[in-house]
Amino acid sequence: MNYVLKRAIALLFLTAIIILAANFFPVETAKAEVQKPAVVESLSDRVASAVITDLSKQTGISPEKLKITRYSRQTWSNGCLGIAKPDEICTQALVEGWRVVVSGNNRTWVYRSNRNGRIVRLEPAKK
């Protein structure tokens, strides 16, 4: 066998080994994971108004002196937003809604609301 033919056969043999090895030992490539930015949902005017109106009625502080300082989406454990009154029957279903922090007259209150503001509840003051 001449020299050129031996080299061609050796080259084909090595190529076959490389192809087989690639199938048995796949090379992992880095994949860039594209993350979508988190959607930050804003508090609706309806929820904000319901909270401010209720707090103003309970405290006598004018709505202009009350300010929403924070809010976050929450899922409440029942229709009473996790704050049942004595002898109150609450629906036993998860309720999507909001936790809203309000400040005014050097005080802070925390409210719970359902998603559309039809139900608002003042959290009891922590002792």
Score class of each variant (00 low, 15 high):
L20Q: 10
F25G: 05
T91P: 03
K57V: 10
W98I: 01
N116M: 07
L55I: 11
A84N: 08
C90H: 04
N114D: 15
M1W: 08
A125N: 09
T29H: 15
L14D: 03
A38F: 10
I61R: 05
Y71R: 02
A125I: 08
V120G: 04
F24M: 12
V110N: 07
V40R: 11
T59F: 01
Q92G: 01
R115E: 15
A16N: 11
R7S: 10
E96P: 02
V34P: 02
F13I: 11
Y3E: 13
K36Q: 14
T91M: 02
Y111E: 06
D45Y: 12
G82V: 01
S44K: 10
A22D: 08
W98C: 01
K67L: 10
G117T: 05
V4H: 07
Q58W: 02
Q58E: 11
T53E: 13
E41V: 14
T108R: 15
G60L: 09
A125P: 14
I89G: 00
T59M: 06
V100L: 06
E33M: 10
R112T: 08
F25V: 14
N106A: 14
A10K: 07
T59S: 14
E123W: 03
I17L: 15
N106W: 11
F13L: 14
Y111P: 04
R112V: 12
L5S: 11
V4A: 14
P86K: 12
S113F: 07
N23P: 00
S49Y: 13
V100Q: 04
V102I: 09
S72P: 00
S49F: 11
A22Q: 11
T75Y: 06
K85I: 00
C90V: 07
L81A: 03
S42V: 14
L43P: 04
T59L: 03
T69P: 06
A84M: 10
A30V: 13
V27R: 12
P86H: 04
V100Y: 04
Y71Q: 03
K127G: 15
K67I: 07
K67H: 08
Y111V: 06
R112F: 02
V51N: 04
N114P: 09
T108P: 01
L12P: 02
G60R: 12
S56M: 08
S49H: 13
I9G: 02
S56T: 08
R118F: 12
T91R: 05
F25C: 06
A30W: 07
F25Q: 07
V47G: 05
E64G: 04
S56C: 09
A21T: 12
F13M: 12
N106P: 00
A32V: 15
L122C: 07
G79K: 03
E96V: 08
R107D: 11
P124K: 15
V100N: 06
A84V: 04
T53M: 09
I89K: 12
L14W: 13
G82T: 06
K6E: 05
G82M: 06
V40P: 01
R99I: 10
A38S: 09
R73Q: 12
T91H: 06
T15P: 00
S77C: 00
K65H: 11
N106M: 08
D87P: 00
I18V: 15
T69R: 09
C80H: 07
